[in-house]
Design a protein around this nucleic acid. Structure first.
Lengths: 119, 119
DNA sequence: TTGACATATAAGCATATTCTTATATAATGA
DNA sequence: TCATTATATAAGAATATGCTTATATGTCAA
């Protein structure tokens, strides 16, 4: 049976492929907790900064995440308006929480909080 | 929060990658309806028989599907006992039904039914 | 304006993926 | 046993992927 919330195979497959990479799947898990700064990703993942950037770009190009610049930092968040968000969410709901990784960062004082002092 | 049904990122990512291919995602959709004979897949997909066989092998190697030989035919079914089955099911539940493709085959008399006349 | 920091892009390389064609294996039935 | 049908495996080619290093761009603050 089809329902109005169904999404074509052709649309879903590329999203699944994106999440089929361990790094990007973990990124999605982190973004389920809260939006994250690129610098947090580069802390967490054992790879070069460009590699992190390229993974984020793929997620962004697919519309799965949204990018926001705040000062010299760029934050990424899950795009909850995206047509594939329900799929992403249902997948991530079965995954272990990545909160500990973020707690670890914050414990080490690496949590970027941006305050617009010019406002 | 983690729950006992959570599955590690390392385990889930390869399954998502498998389903991230349009052909294999459609195969999974077909198998959500019923078990299928290899010959049905070769009818449905516009690719060579070896290509179909190779996709099925990947799904089988990952444990996502089970293979059963019946006479000269080989049938594949979703492995409902596999630890990743809940994930697979939750993904497929959001996908459009592939039942029409199977109905089409059966209408054309291409549905293989195996009866063990030697029994 | 300049230096430092954060991030993105470019280019190149190694490996993975997904086809194809050719061939091997397995089961059936004359 | 032999031909036929169903499926799997092997080998090779084209393309995709994911990393690296080098460099460019954007922002801030002195």
């Amino acid at each position: 049976m089809n329902t109005s919330s169904d999404v074509p195979i052709d649309t879903a497959a590329p999203v699944l492929k994106l999440l089929g990479d361990k790094t990007r799947l973990t990124m999605a898990g982190l973004l389920m907790e809260r939006e994250c700064c690129v610098c947090e990703f580069t802390e967490i993942f054992d790879m070069s900064q460009p590699a992190v950037s390229q993974h984020l770009r793929k997620l962004r190009d697919a519309g799965v995440v949204l990018e926001t610049r705040r000062g010299q930092w760029v934050f990424y968040a899950l795009n909850t308006e995206h047509k594939m968000y329900p799929l992403v969410k249902s997948i991530m709901n079965g995954m272990p929480s990545q909160k500990e990784k973020l707690d670890e960062l914050e414990k080490n004082g690496n949590h970027v909080v941006w305050c617009d002092t010019k406002r």
